[in-house]
C-alpha cells in the first residue's frame, strides 16, 4: 500500500490523506518530491504582489463593460427584445429557429428568469467578443509562423484540459469575486477552439489560391484580407460557434465565484437542494444555447 511520509518521517496511511495532498512535504516515500504546488503558490503570490495594479485596472474596466451591457440589455422591454431576437433568427437561420426563439424566450420570461438570462448572455457576449479579439489574431499568427505554432499548441491543450476549477481559484486574488473573474476564466476555457479553427481555416486555403495572390502582386495583408480570411470564414465561424457554446457552459460553473446569472440560480438550487428551481434554470440555459448555436452556425454557412 502506498504511504505518505511526513517531513518528520512519520508513516501515515494513505486512507487519511487521499483527499488532501500535502503539497508542503519534501519527500514521497523517501524520494525528493517535485514541489510543483509550492512553486505555483509562490508564482501566484509573486504575481499578486507585482501585477496587482494592472489586473485591478483590467478588472475595473471589464466590470464597467459587463455591468453596463447587463443593465443595457435588461433595460430593453422584454417583449420587444424577444421579437427582435425572433426577427434576427428569422433573417439568419430561417422560420423554424425564429419560432423556437420566440416560444423559448417567452417561456424564460414567463418563469421569471428573463433578467438572470440576460446577465448570463451579457457575460457570454463579452467573453466571446474578447475571445474573437484575441483568438483570431493568435490563430493567424500560428498559421503563419511554425515556431509560434509549436509554442502555442501545447498551451492550448493545457487551457482546454486543465479542470476549470483549478484556474477558477487563482482568478479570485487577481480579479476578486464577481463577473470579471468569471469572464476571464471563461475566456481561458473558450478561446482555444477559435485559435485552432482559425489556424485550420488558414492552412486549408488551397496552395493554388495562395499562388494566385502572390503571382498577382498582393501584399501580406492583401493576401490575408482578400484571399485567406474570406476562404477560412466558415471554419472560423465554426470556431466562434464552439466558443459561444463553451462560454455558456463555463459561465455557469463560474457562478461559484459569484458570477450570478443563470449559473447563480443553478448554484443556489444545488446548495438548497431545490430541484425544481435547478431544472428551470437548466432549461433556460439549454434554450439560450440552442438559439445562440443555430444563429451563429447559420452565419458560417451563408
Amino acid at each position: 500500500m502506498q504511504v505518505w511520509r511526513e517531513p518528520e518521517g512519520k508513516r501515515v496511511s494513505k486512507m487519511n490523506h487521499n483527499l488532501f495532498l500535502n503539497i508542503t512535504s519534501y519527500f514521497t516515500d523517501g524520494i525528493p518530491r517535485i514541489p510543483l504546488g509550492r512553486w505555483t503558490d509562490q508564482t501566484i503570490e509573486f504575481l499578486q504582489a507585482n501585477c496587482r495594479e494592472s489586473t485591478q485596472a483590467i478588472s475595473d474596466f471589464l466590470e464597467i463593460v459587463i455591468k453596463g451591457l447587463q443593465e443595457g440589455l435588461i433595460s430593453v422591454p422584454p417583449l420587444l427584445a424577444i421579437l427582435l431576437v425572433a426577427l434576427i433568427a428569422w433573417k439568419l437561420a430561417g422560420r423554424k429557429i425564429a419560432i423556437f426563439s420566440l416560444l423559448g424566450l417567452l417561456f424564460i420570461w414567463n418563469i421569471g428568469l428573463w433578467d438572470v438570462t440576460l446577465q448570463t448572455l451579457a457575460m457570454v457576449l463579452v467573453a466571446v467578443f474578447m475571445c474573437i479579439l484575441l483568438g483570431v489574431p493568435l490563430g493567424i499568427l500560428i498559421a503563419k509562423n511554425e515556431t509560434f505554432y509549436r509554442i502555442i499548441a501545447p498551451v492550448l491543450d493545457f487551457m482546454q484540459t486543465l479542470p476549470a476549477f483549478v484556474y477558477l481559484l487563482p482568478a479570485i486574488p487577481f480579479f476578486g469575486l464577481g463577473v470579471v473573474p468569471a469572464v476571464i476564466t471563461t475566456l481561458i476555457f473558450a478561446m482555444p477552439p477559435i485559435i485552432r479553427l482559425t489556424y485550420l481555416g488558414l492552412i486549408q486555403v488551397p496552395e493554388e489560391l495562395l499562388e494566385l495572390g502572390k503571382s498577382f502582386g498582393s501584399t501580406f495583408f492583401q493576401m490575408l484580407l482578400k484571399i485567406e480570411l474570406p476562404l477560412a470564414r466558415s471554419t472560423i465561424m465554426a470556431g466562434i460557434n464552439q466558443c459561444i457554446m463553451l462560454s455558456l457552459s463555463m459561465v455557469v460553473i463560474a457562478a461559484m465565484i459569484g458570477a450570478k446569472g443563470l449559473g447563480g440560480v443553478v448554484w443556489t438550487a444545488i446548495q438548497t437542494l431545490n430541484m425544481g428551481m435547478g431544472f428551470e434554470a437548466g432549461v433556460a440555459i439549454v434554450i439560450l444555447a440552442i438559439i445562440l448555436d443555430r444563429i451563429t452556425s447559420s452565419l458560417g454557412k451563408s
Binding site: 493554388e208 489560391l209 484571399i227 474570406p230
Partner: peptide, 13 residues
C-alpha cells in the same frame, strides 16, 4: 506578367 493556373484558381466567394 500574369499567371494562369491549371485548376483555374478562382476565388469561390
Amino acid at each position: 506578367m500574369s499567371m494562369i493556373f491549371q485548376k483555374f484558381a478562382l476565388l469561390p466567394n
